[in-house]
């Protein structure tokens, strides 16, 4: 019995990581209506950046974020101005195709440079990678997992405050509502979108760091991370910030319970729960529509 409770606790903590990687995807979708298929690959870029700084220059991975995060911000800005902006003008299909092409380029450039070896940042953070608080005999909370979860909450809360309380945040929300009209009130939609992409990439940088510390990664690990981010974002309701935390937790709990049932179950249960939630949501939407229609007819 306690084993299951432990799995749920671990799943919730894992959900913190998924929330970190999902919130950037969800944020970009809500602002620019783009699903960036290179999202996972860019997280791996950040992880490799931290790895190089730690391995070659002796940086502490947390300290190295001071270099990697601004770099990710610049990548986000450039990405928006060069590829995404042009893609958006080409209709709905072009962003999917161009970001998928970009992910192929990134993955294979990483492979060319770093080879097939799996890497991890765990050796560079010493005891933090395995230290934990023992709650009961069966339940322990890893310090790194706890830090990840708290960071997730801080990032989501920070984004929320940023969007509601700052000038730029309000400009981003206005641009998301109507990119053409904001020009009339003196907002440069292109610059606002580039800023939003830069912010999304900051969260991707943090996600890459936690992925690297928590587990191993290799040049082709971007695809699975994109899938996890997407699943968490969709389960939580695409475009909703706190939803990604709920989505991440649902995904994490499903995976860790699945892993307890069967060694292969980790990924399978995650995907199945995602599809079930998707199906249920569509069904509920349909019932909702029908309900509204009947209401309108009787009104």
């Amino acid at each position: 019995m306690m084993i299951w409770v432990n799995q749920i606790v671990q799943g919730i903590l894992l959900g913190g990581y998924y929330a970190v990687i999902a919130c950037g995807l969800s944020f970009m979708f809500s602002v620019m209506r783009i699903i960036n298929l290179a999202h996972g690959s860019l997280a791996i870029v950040a992880a490799f950046g931290l790895y190089v700084l730690a391995d070659q220059f002796g940086f502490d991975p947390f300290g190295a974020l001071i270099i990697v995060l601004p770099a990710m911000g610049v990548i986000g800005w450039v990405l928006q101005r060069t590829i995404l902006e042009r893609s958006q003008r080409g209709g709905m299909l072009v962003p999917i195709l161009s970001t998928f092409g970009l992910s192929i380029v990134i993955d294979n450039l990483l492979f060319e440079h770093f080879g097939a070896d799996t890497r991890s940042l765990a050796p560079y953070i010493d005891e933090l990678s395995w230290d934990s608080w023992q709650l009961t005999d069966d339940i322990s909370i890893g310090k790194l997992a706890a830090i990840t979860f708290v960071t997730a909450v801080l990032i989501l809360g920070g984004l929320q405050l940023f969007l509601t309380r700052t000038q730029l945040g309000r400009a981003i929300r206005a641009t998301a509502e109507d990119p053409d009209t904001v020009g009339l009130i003196g907002i440069n939609a292109r610059r606002v979108n580039a800023a939003a992409a830069a912010i999304a990439m900051l969260t991707v940088g943090v996600a890459g760091a936690f992925l690297g510390m928590r587990a191993t990664f290799d040049p082709y690990a971007g695809g699975p991370q994109l899938i996890f981010a997407f699943e968490a974002a969709v389960i939580g309701g695409a475009g909703s910030l706190w939803g990604t935390l709920i989505g991440g937790i649902v995904l994490g709990v499903a995976q860790s319970i699945g892993a307890q049932i069967n060694p292969q179950g980790f990924l399978i249960t995650g995907h199945v729960v995602f599809l079930v939630v998707l199906l249920a949501r569509l069904h509920v939407d349909e019932i909702g529509t029908r309900f509204r229609k009947t209401m309108r007819r009787s009104a």
Partner: peptide, 27 residues
């Protein structure tokens, strides 16, 4: 149900289906 999804959601949703098929065939 995949066809209810639009644009990028359909694109990645299909990727999830592929990943799931792969895992199930492995069993």
């Amino acid at each position: 149900f995949m066809l209810r999804l639009k644009g990028g959601e359909f694109a990645i949703g299909m990727w999830v289906v592929a990943a799931l098929c792969h895992l199930l065939v492995n069993l």
